[in-house]
Simulated scan of single mutants.
Amino acid sequence: MAQAPGPDEDLMTLDELTTRVGTTVRTLRFWTSKGLVPPPIRHGRSGYYTADHVARLELVQELQAHGFTLAAIEGHLAQLPPDATPEDIALHRTLLAPWMPESPVEMTRAELERRASRPLDDDDLGTLVALGIVHPGPDGLAGGQLRVAVSQLGVGLGLLELGFPREAALAAGEVYAAHGRAIAEELYALFRDRVWPRYRGDADAADRLREVVERLKPLSVASLVNAYESAMEEKRREAVDRRAATR
């Protein structure tokens, strides 16, 4: 739901809104019908739009530009608090963009097999889906188009060659998703409470914050990898010690 406008907040007409965000009236009405953008605020028989509509539209455009499907965009927007302000949404969008995964490449199953240099049966495709490397199109795996994270395809094919079981891929995906959400929530709170106030009010606040996140991303990824490797090594040593103690 759109935030009620404040007494000094500028209201925009439909044409003014579409011009500002660079979309068409038809697209805006379609997104509104799908619940991605709240309906206009009614003053009599006329509808008007606020900064809340602008922020949500720009977030939808950002997600769409990175290859998110309509269903994925709906799911992402559903995670926003119902009382999120335009500033909250703008901050979310600023923090989100540098962490976006690569845009998937659309290809047919035959094209995927040519790229893999091997035939792929349904079990193979199921494992690649479980690993998050292949995403079925609207018609499922049997349909025409698949969306493929090509930079990760080599890793997935290597795991297939090693006989990596699909049930393990599914379980690992659940672990990654659960812990990824927890890390994202804590980092988002950190930026919102400790970093954003430093830049809020600056004319280029969003651009500066985006650059901070861009520069921090390699360090964050390296820190997560190091923490994972250290924890796995610790678990390996614990397992060795337990086996030694039972001999």
Score class of each variant (00 low, 15 high):
A4E: 15
P7I: 12
L11A: 07
E16Q: 05
T19F: 11
R20Q: 06
V25G: 07
R26A: 07
R26L: 08
L28A: 12
S33Y: 04
I41K: 13
I41P: 04
I41F: 10
G47N: 02
G47H: 06
V54E: 03
L63V: 08
G67C: 08
G67M: 04
L70F: 03
L77Y: 13
L77F: 13
L80W: 11
A84R: 13
D88I: 00
A97W: 07
W99M: 11
M100H: 14
S103C: 13
S103D: 10
M107K: 14
E111P: 08
E111M: 10
E113G: 03
A116C: 09
R118N: 01
L120K: 00
D121I: 00
G126K: 01
V129P: 03
A130L: 09
L131Y: 07
L131W: 08
I133D: 02
I133R: 10
G140P: 02
G143S: 05
A149Q: 14
A149G: 12
S151V: 10
L157I: 08
L159K: 13
L159C: 08
F164W: 01
P165S: 07
G173Y: 14
V175P: 09
Y176T: 06
A182V: 01
E185Q: 10
W196A: 00
P197L: 00
R198W: 05
Y199L: 09
D207M: 07
R208A: 00
L209S: 02
V221G: 04
A222T: 09
A222N: 11
L224S: 02
Y228W: 09
E229Y: 04
S230P: 00
M232F: 04
M232P: 01
E234C: 07
A239L: 05
A239Y: 00
A244F: 14
